[in-house]
Amino acid sequence: MSVDPHANVELPAALAAKEVEITTFPEELKAECDAIRGRYETPRAALMPILWAFQRRFGYVSQEMERVIAAELEIPVIWVRETVTFYTMYNQRPVGSHHVQVCGNLSCSLCGAKETLAMISEELGIGVGETTADGRFTLSVVQCLAACEEAPVMQVNDRYYGRLDRARVREIFGGMG
């Protein structure tokens, strides 16, 4: 789970700054959205790839964006809400520039995931579900990433990193902007 939807905590300032206000369908996504719709048989079927397009562009999908997307696809806004909240990868609020997602499932646990998570938490200075004050890192625990052969594993944004130890984690984070 990327960000706990039930966490009603106030957004840290660094993340609040990443919030964007969207009231109409963004021009820059129109062409991509039309292309996506061309690949699917129904407007609703185009929803997930369009949500991905918004998340790539804005880092998350706000409720305003949900409304804009529903209007564009001419589908009920509740359908968008259901889909956004069902899938864990759609961020409903902004996250850090580097979303660190540590696998906590069995194979990783057998290879020290608990210690790895504690170590990463210590390195970043934040707990699970938190974001660094500078808005660079958000730390989450996720379910199996299908990379058990490299346990313990984490995903940072789109990339997988395996066989984690402190030296490697420092090297990875050090190389990030």
């Binding site: 939807p5 039930h6 409720q63 949900e66 409304r67 009920p76 806004v77 509740i78 359908w79 809400r81 259901e82 909240t85 069902f86």
Partner: peptide
């Protein structure tokens, strides 16, 4: 009229009113 849906999943699933509805 599509005012209602079920959001989230597992035992956090919940009947939800569409945003703004």
């Amino acid at each position: 009229t599509h005012e209602l849906g079920i959001t989230e999943r597992a035992d956090h699933s919940e009947i939800t009113l569409a945003p703004g509805a």
